[in-house]
Amino acid sequence: MTYSDEAELEPVLAPFVSEGLAGSDKVLYFTDVTHPAIVTGLLRAWGVGPDAYIADGRLDVRQMETTDPDLLVDQLADAARQARAQGYRALRVTGEMSWAVREGTARLAAYETKVQTLFDTGLAMGICQYDRRLFQPVVLAELQRIHQGRDMDLEFDGALLRIRRTVHPPGIRVEGEVDANTLGELNKALASAVLRQPGDVHVDLGEVSFIDLSGLRALVDTAARIGDGRSLVLDPVPEHVLQLIKLIGWDGTPGLRLRGGDPR
C-alpha cells in the first residue's frame, strides 16, 4: 500500500492485524525509523488491543535489524516457518519500506518479487507500507505493477468471484459472478467494509459479469442499513446491473447511490 499520513494506514492495517489475531495467524510488524512503542500506541488507538498479544509473543512489533533485502527476505521466511511450526495458520507481516530509499530502490523490485514468492507459498502474507512522500512516483508505479493482482487487499478469491478491498475510494471491488454460492462472501466483505470505513463505502462492480437477485438484495440491504448519514456508492455499475436495480425498484433505496448520483 501507499500512504502519506498515518490516517491512511488505519483502514488497511487495523483490519489486517486484528483479523489475523482474531483468527489463527501470527503478526510481525517491522518498523524502520519509527520506534516500536509508537506503533504499539497506534494499534491501541485503532482498537486492536495489542498488549496481551505482544505479551504472549503472538504479535511482534520490532525495528528491523538489517536493510539488506536478501537478509530481510531470509528473516521473513524463517519467521514464517517458525510461526507454522508453532501451530499458526500463517504469518502476517507488515513493514515500513523507507529503508529502501537509503538502500537504493534499484534492488527493490527484486526484493518485492522474492517476498511475493514467499507469500505465494501461503506461509505468509503481507503489506508493504510505502510513504508517498519518500518515493519517486515512477518507483511506486513499478511496484504497483509487481503487486498487481496479488496484493493483500484480496478479501476473497474463488473460481467465480474475486473481492478486493480498495483504499481510493474506500470500499471493495467485486469481479466475476455473484450467486447463491458466493453470496456469503459478498455479505462478509460488505459487512467488514461498512465496519472498517467511517464514511461512505464504495463498491466497484465494473467487472461483475453476473449478479443474481439475492446478490442485488445484499447490496441494497447493506445500503439501507449503513446508517450515520452514510451511503453505499455503487460505481461503476455495469449497464445490466443498473437496469436490474431500476426494474426491481431498488434505485430509490435510502443510503444507496448509483454511479456517484445524488445522495438520497
Binding site: 450467486d179 443474481d212 445490466h240 436490474l244
Partner: peptide
Amino acid sequence: GERATMLAVAVHEASR
C-alpha cells in the same frame, strides 16, 4: 450484450 445478460438472469432465477 445487455439483452443476452438480462435473459441469462431471468433464466437463472427461474432455474433457481
